[in-house]
Structures are given as C-alpha cells and as structure tokens.
Design a protein around this nucleic acid. Structure first.
Length: 469
RNA sequence: GCCCGGGUGACAGAGCGGCUAAUGUGACGGACUGCAGAUCCGUUUUAAGGGGGUUCGACUCCCUCCCCGGGCACCA
C-alpha cells in the first residue's frame, strides 16, 4: 500500500504519484510578516513540515518552497501608522517567526522566497496575461484579471460566481469589470512603496507572487501546494487561473492540500475577538515540543480548538511518551548485553512501525500514528526491567524513526553533566543518606527544594532518577 | 442565499459495511513506595445529533432535518 493524499481538487484521497519520479516539488503559502506570528501559523507550518519529513523518509527528494509576502496592504498601513520603512516592519517579525519555527522544530523548508525578489517574474507574468487576453489595465494603471475569461474559475472551491454574494466581507473595488476580478497590479498611491512596470509605478496584487515564485523554481507544473483552507478561495483559485492562463499547462498543481483552521474556544482567532494568541506568548507558556505535539496529535485537515486545557492535556500526554523514551534510553545503557529476549516487546515495536506507516500513508494521519506509539510506550513500560538490550534497542529505534518524521522527542535531554548536574547528584546522594537513616523530614525537604526549581526526583527500583522541568 | 467541513464516552479525538468502537486526558479504586512521583492493573466506558432509506447486517453508504465551524473576492 502506497501513500494516499487527499486532493482538494478531486475531494478524495488519491494515490500519490509525483510528476517526476522520486522528485517532489512542494509549495506552501507563507507568512506576511506584518505582525507577530500566531498559533494558527504554527498549525499550518507544523502540518506541512510533517508532510515534507514523511515524504523524505519515504525516499522522495523534496524541494519545499515557501513564499514570504513582504509587500501588502497591512504592511503599508503599518508604515503609515509608524513612519517606518517596510523592511523595518517585515524583518523583525520574520526573525521572530524563524525563532518560533526553530522552537517548534519546523526545519523542512528549503527556500523562503521573498515576493519583492521576484518583481521581474511578476511583471512578466502580468504582461503575459494581458497579451493573452486574460487581464486588462484600468485607467489608474492597475491591472486586473478578468475572471470571465478563465473557464476553470471555481474548480477548486466549488464556488459558482453567480451564486456568490460579491462584497459579502470586503467592499468590491469600483475599477473592476466584474466583481469577481482580482488585482494583479495595484497602481501606486501617495506614500506607498512601488516598483516600475509598463503600466506605471505600483506593486503586485496578492495572488501573483506565488505563481511568479513557483514558475521560476518549479516551472509550469508542480506536485503539492499546501495552505490553510481559508486560502482556498479566492487565493488558490486565483493562482490556478493565473498560472494555467499564463503557461497553458494543466494542471498547474497535481495535489492541493488544505489544513484545517485553528480555533480558539470554538471561534476563529481574531484580534477583534480578543482571543488572539501570538506564537511567542504560547511558547512562553508551553514548551515548543509540547505545542508541536498538541498540533500533530490531530489530523492536519481537522480544525483544532486551541485552549489552555487542551494544551495541558497535550503536556501530560507528551510527557508520557517523552518519559518512556528517556527511561528506555537509561535502561538501554544498563541493560545486560545478551539479556532476556522478549517476543512481546518485539512484536509491539513491529506493530507500532506498521501502524505508523499505514496511518501516515493514509493522508498523513498523525493522530493514528501516535496511537500506535502510545501502545508501544505501554509495552515498553510493562516490560521495564525484564528485557535485554536488543529488544529495547528495537523499541528505541522505532521511536527514533517516527520521531524524526513527527519532529518530536528530538531534543537531547539534559545530560546531567556540568556544575548544575553535579550539584543535583550531590543533593540526591544526601537525600539517599537521609532516607537510609529514615530521616524523611530531611529527605522530603531536599526533594521539595529541588522540585521548586523544576527538578523532579523519582525513586525507582534501579535507583533515583531525576529530570529537569 | 451559495460553496466546503464536522456532530462518536466525563473531555479530546481516530478507524472500520460484520469482530471486545483505537488512543490520549481526567476522575475513582488497587499494586508498588517511608510518603510522593513515574509505572502497571481495574473502573468510569454496552459512547455514534433526529428521522427515513439501501443492506442478511449501518457508527460507517444514500436522502432529509437540526446544530456547530470555515469561505463568499487582500486571512496560515
């Protein structure tokens, strides 16, 4: 059984067959660094990070490209409000985003493509669309795509132009011939950043940068386009219209993948609703691995409700796996070389590997994959102290391989080395002495003192174990 | 109005036309422990929004109604 991917274009799971053998070209709609990155961004980028990592583990050579929108209405609004240059607004937010992605172990992106580095391609595409009769120039020098000229409009989202309510959320611009038309080029208004074009000074519309970027890197066709569902219409629809009209090659993208929205207490997250979670604030409260686990513990197409209770639950669940693996590593170091073979642990590891692959092959079902790993954790804990090295190593390798894809339990645990580790060890020794004397007042006090500093002691049959945090 | 998703235990959330309907969290009880934690065992747990239909058999497929969420033209 091979990999199957849910394709929004066909509304069903399809066998994954890339256009060029083992080579996979993958593009995901990226950030507009006009404000602090939020937890919704984390959901999308973690999801596609897992997709890229799983494809690579399966032997595909993935080129993962993401755009960065550095010219856009909201950036221009901030320029007016703060008097800053657009670069000075965009750069700090992007650096903050990079830090957050590092904390979340989002590492699969090969190239971040900045829109303003693609002005030549953008202008050429717009020129081509005008030449082919798909776009028109308005009096003020703006250029619009004429959606009535493109017969595939609505194929991705199932929308029918006639039945939509134009202006339901955003006012329709008066220069358009049809309400459905969208801007390819926006004529400069006073004070706005601008670039030269055959139609006068201006800047690109929202949708054109993505096709400019992907056509330069990938050519007229590529394998996977990802993004959150909210971008399906009109943004992705517009990309298809632009690219297929410009290149004449169909389909522009073979597999369209859309991730579910992140909700906050059952509602869409919005600054105006007062439920906005900046990623840096979430990461100040929760470890990056816990947040990543929280996101990966749901299917990427499902919406997730972001709540403190949900995060706390994820923290407990993640600790179960992370602790099991840490204990497994400790046991592996002390386990007898020949050891006792345990067929049941071997079988459990094999089952977890099979479940992992079957689940991930089924449209990247990380939730199901994790269920298999919880089963393995249970088997590991049950066999604790009774199994030899080989079976333990087998279980460990299973966690290691799946963790590489999910991006979890990758962080090296505190090695216990260094001054702090030595001091903790010394305190643990003192406590053991006190316990031997049955001086539990002292031993409990040492435990409390360490606990107050985030060091948890656990008495086990094989001695005292401690862990930070 | 139109286009998409979704409704499963106390909560979160999977799979499957038939098997004890996963997994996690919580709560409670037991084992272990000086106590605690971690872990294990057990209980909560004979959980599928309403109504029709197809089928030998429906949580799963179809229709319909209700409810929730997203999109409808510059939102990851």
């Amino acid at each position: 059984m091979g990999l199957r991917v849910y394709n929004t274009l066909s509304r069903q799971k399809e066998e994954f067959v890339p256009l060029r053998g083992k080579r996979v070209h993958m593009f995901v709609c990226g950030l507009t660094p006009q404000d602090h990155a939020h937890v919704g961004h984390a959901k999308t980028y973690v999801a596609f990070d897992v997709v890229a990592k799983y494809l690579r583990q399966k032997g595909y050579r993935v080129f993962y490209l993401q755009n960065v929108t550095d010219v856009e209405d909201r950036i221009i609004e901030k320029m007016a409000a703060t008097g800053k240059a657009w670069q000075d607004i965009v750069q700090p937010f992007f650096r903050e985003y990079e830090d957050a992605m590092a904390a979340l172990n989002v590492t699969a992106v090969d190239v971040y493509a900045w829109a303003t580095d693609y002005m030549h391609e953008i202008v050429e595409q717009i020129r081509g669309l005008i030449d082919r009769g798909f776009a028109y120039v308005a009096e003020d020098g703006s250029v619009y795509y004429d959606t009535t000229k493109y017969k595939g409009w609505g194929q991705l989202s199932g929308q029918k132009v006639e039945k939509n309510l134009p202006g339901a959320r955003v006012a329709v611009e008066e220069r358009k011939r049809n309400p459905a038309d969208f801007a390819l080029w926006k004529a400069q208004k006073p004070g706005e950043p601008s670039w030269d074009s055959p139609w006068g000074k201006g800047r690109p519309g929202w949708h054109i940068e993505d096709t400019a970027i992907t056509i330069r890197h990938f050519g007229p066709q590529y394998d996977i386009h990802g993004g959150a569902t909210e971008l399906m219409f009109p943004h992705h629809e517009a990309e298809i219209a632009q690219a297929e009209a410009f290149t004449g090659v169909k389909p522009f993208v073979k597999y369209w993948m859309h991730g579910g929205m992140l909700m906050v207490r059952g509602e869409e997250m919005h600054k105006s609703l007062g439920n906005y979670w900046a990623l840096k604030d979430a990461l100040a409260q929760f470890d990056g691995e816990v947040l990543r686990f929280f996101l990966v513990n749901a299917h990427y197409r499902s919406p997730i409700d972001f709540t403190l209770e949900g995060l706390e639950e994820a923290k407990s669940a993640y600790a179960r796996l992370a602790d099991t693996i840490a204990n497994l590593e400790a046991e592996l170091r002390s386990a007898p070389e020949p050891g006792i073979e345990d067929p049941s642990l071997r079988a459990a590891a094999k089952r977890a590997r099979e479940t992992f692959e079957t689940a991930m092959d089924d449209d990247f079902n990380t939730r199901e994959a994790l269920a298999g790993l919880f089963d393995l954790a249970n088997a590991v804990n049950r066999s604790s102290g009774k199994v030899g090295r080989e079976a333990l190593a087998d279980a460990w390798a299973t966690f290691d391989a799946s963790g590489a894809v999910l991006g979890l339990w990758r962080r090296p645990k505190d090695s216990g080395k260094g001054l702090a580790g030595d001091l903790i060890d010394a305190l643990v020794e003192l406590r053991e002495d006190a316990r031997k004397r049955k001086d539990f007042a002292t031993s409990d006090r040492i435990r409390d003192v360490l606990a107050a500093r985030g060091v948890v002691l656990e008495d086990t049959k094989s001695g005292v174990r401690w862990k930070a945090r």
